[in-house]
Simulated scan of single mutants.
Amino acid sequence: MGAISPLGHDSTSTAAAYTSGKPAFNTIFHQGIPTPVAALPAEAEEQLQQLLLANPVYKQLDRSVQMAVYAARQAAAQAGWLNENAPTDDDLAVNIGSSRGATGLFEEHFGAFQQENLSSSASPTTTLGNLSSWVAHAVNAGGGQISHSITCSTALMAIANGVAWLKSGMAKRFLAGGTEAPLTPFTIAQMKAVGIYSRLADHPYPCQPYAAEKQNTFTLGEGAAVFALEQVLNPAPGTPVVEGVGLGFEKLVSKTGISAEGINFQKSMRQALAQLPEHDRQVDLIITHTPGTRAGDKAELAAIQAVFGDILPLITTNKWLLGHTLGASGALSLQYALHVLQQQQFASIPYPHHLPQQAPARINRIMVNAAGFGGNAASVIVGVAS
């Protein structure tokens, strides 16, 4: 696993951030209005810049691609797959996605276009295919290279693709994840135009999923996370294992595709649970999508109640710490799930909320949810080998 986010640049710094429970938000002025965002901290930014200094060709790429390369190289190195001078690994496939893609560079090039000074690099550096192709280049992967966007379900859809490719034999090793660099003027303006952006710039917790006070507190963050996946018949005890992957879609009922019942979530969760052993289709914890919007948070909780009935698993989220990273959010939630499985602890939500927080004796299996515009949802169940 590799990741870079407002919470850190490696497993140690991220674990420390989750242990401290300190949110990663700061305030910028966007169109003259104080606006909360979650950007990379100084140490993570320094690590990213060191990557660019060591590989000057990366400087031409969008920030979303740069973060994906950073996270992918970290994951590949951890898996023992990062062989700089070896022949191209044709058995290693890549699927990296993003909701918005090269937002920073696109806005820069569009500004240049308005000034009739458009660069020849505008098209090559803003295509979504940049993600997988540059990541593949960075890790010496020669297998399938997929870039995609299914809005905020993107990263978990990449995990689903990885599982499918490995089970089909189309790849022996697979790098899957998501990245997002949405802290740009136009992207922030788009989220504000939807009417969901948090106005709590002066609050220590500007993003408040499941808050007792009913208001929209959506807050943007940036980051990337990538996972090294392979199919292993007898994994060593303690190895993280993807046990189930579910996808769900529903007919559009609004611009954002949210129904009050969370039909898409119901479908994705049930599909993932159906892949567990028939006698053991339970999870100990759900890390929810919940971006801090009234309609979205309520719909997901309704879907969880419909699927699990009166005996709900423990429910939590990490967005009150790092905001909504759009296409990367599912991957960063999955990173959080692996942290919880390893450390057997999670950050307790500090503001007034409606969620029970009584943890079971041990957390052995976690479901991660994600959903996006268009009525889509994805659920991934992860546990550890015994």
Rank of each mutant, 00 (worst) to 15 (best):
V368E: 03
A93G: 15
S333Q: 14
G323I: 08
A295K: 12
I363R: 09
L334M: 14
L183V: 11
D310I: 00
S379E: 08
G111L: 02
N264Y: 02
I286K: 00
Q208V: 04
N85E: 15
C207N: 13
W165Y: 14
S123I: 15
V241C: 10
L7S: 14
S348Y: 03
Y58T: 03
P6S: 09
N83G: 06
A75H: 06
N234K: 11
T293N: 02
G375I: 07
Q208T: 14
G327K: 04
L341I: 03
L338F: 07
G177K: 07
S333F: 06
Q305M: 02
T35R: 01
G177V: 07
R173F: 03
A225F: 10
I159M: 07
E261L: 02
L276P: 13
Y351R: 04
L326S: 08
E261H: 02
Y205S: 10
E43M: 06
A77G: 13
P350L: 03
H353I: 00
S133F: 09
S133K: 00
G101F: 06
H9I: 02
H324W: 08
N369G: 13
G223S: 12
A212S: 14
L326G: 06
Q208M: 09
G2W: 05
T126C: 14
S153K: 00
G257W: 05
R100N: 15
S333E: 15
T179K: 01
G244K: 07
I363D: 11
F249C: 12
A158P: 10
G238V: 01
M367W: 03
P34H: 05
L61I: 02
I304V: 13
P313C: 08
S268M: 00
S121H: 12
F218T: 08
A299T: 01
G246P: 12
V340L: 05
V94N: 09
F106P: 00
L92C: 09
L105M: 09
M170C: 10
T325F: 02
K255G: 09
G177M: 09
A306T: 13
E180L: 04
N130A: 07
V139Y: 00
A377V: 04
A347K: 01
K255I: 08
L273P: 14
H203K: 03
R73H: 10
L312M: 11
T325L: 14
A158M: 06
Q66G: 13
W81H: 08
T35K: 00
S13T: 15
D297W: 03
A370H: 10
G221E: 12
Y205T: 06
E300P: 09
A102L: 03
G296E: 04
W165K: 08
Q49K: 10
V135Y: 06
L233A: 15
R294K: 08
L118W: 00
A331L: 11
L338S: 05
A193E: 14
E46K: 09
G111T: 05
K167S: 14
T325G: 09
P235M: 08
L229C: 10
Q50A: 15
F186L: 14
G143F: 01
R199T: 15
A68I: 01
P350D: 11
G262W: 04
I311M: 08
A378P: 11
